[in-house]
Each structure stands twice: as C-alpha cells, then as structure tokens.
Amino acid sequence: MKVLTLNFLTCAVKACKTTSTSFPLHPKDCELVSDTIAPNPQLLLNVLPRIDWNALIITAGELGFPTLPPTPPTREELESNEKMMTELHTLLLETQISEGSLVCGNCGHEYKIKEGIANFLLPNHLV
C-alpha cells in the first residue's frame, strides 16, 4: 500500500472513529519499498489540496522522511519548488509499506500489513 493511503484511513473500531487520535494510524516496524514512478507534477498539484497536511507531517516523521513544513505549500509554491516536488513524489507516489503494522492512537489496536496488504478485519470482541 502506498503511504498516501494513510491519509484516508482511520481505525476500524466504531468507538474510535469520533476520537481525533484514531487518525492518522501510526506505522510500526514498517518495511518500505520504493517503486520508480515517472514524475507526475499534475497529479501532485491536484492531490495537494485534498491532503490532510497535519496527518501527513505525522506520517512522514514516523516513517523517517524529511520534515515537512508546518503548513502546506500553495499550488504556486509547490510548482516552483523542485526540491519539495521531488520529496512529495517520493513520499506519496513511490513509497509503499510492504510489511509491518498500523497502530490506532486511541485503542492501541494493531493492524498487520503483509505483502503490502493492510488487514483491517477486526477480531470478534472489537466488532
């Protein structure tokens, strides 16, 4: 799964949904792989406005990526900043999590990732 996916997922436990700490999920002991993808500035520029930037800062930091600025760049800023364009390309489009887990900051439940597929099925006692 691509790192960008984490920007759209929360804990699957119903009671966690309303808490702010169930998003984003926290990667733990994750193995990363990088796909080589041709530059796609159009995609990055149009994905930018729909990203939850604060969540992305947390995800990037926890995965050991370069620190992102505290506020998202504007479209024009990103367009003219080649370095940030490259960094976001690597983080959002090229990086996959292949193994590890995702942990909910509220209930602590760990969702395993195997062969790039995160398992959000819940054990009976959490359904």
Binding site: K2, F8, L9, A12, K17, I117, F120
Partner: peptide, 19 residues
C-alpha cells in the same frame, strides 16, 4: 490513474469520514 493498493476490510469501516 494512480492506484494506491488494496486493503483487507469489512466494507467502509476503515475509511476516514468524507474522503
């Protein structure tokens, strides 16, 4: 398009609201 992967889950219960 840009495919981000598949996840194993029960319907929509792991999707963030409004996305």
């Amino acid at each position: 398009g840009f495919y981000m992967g598949n996840i194993l889950g029960d319907l929509t219960n792991t999707l963030k609201a409004g996305v």
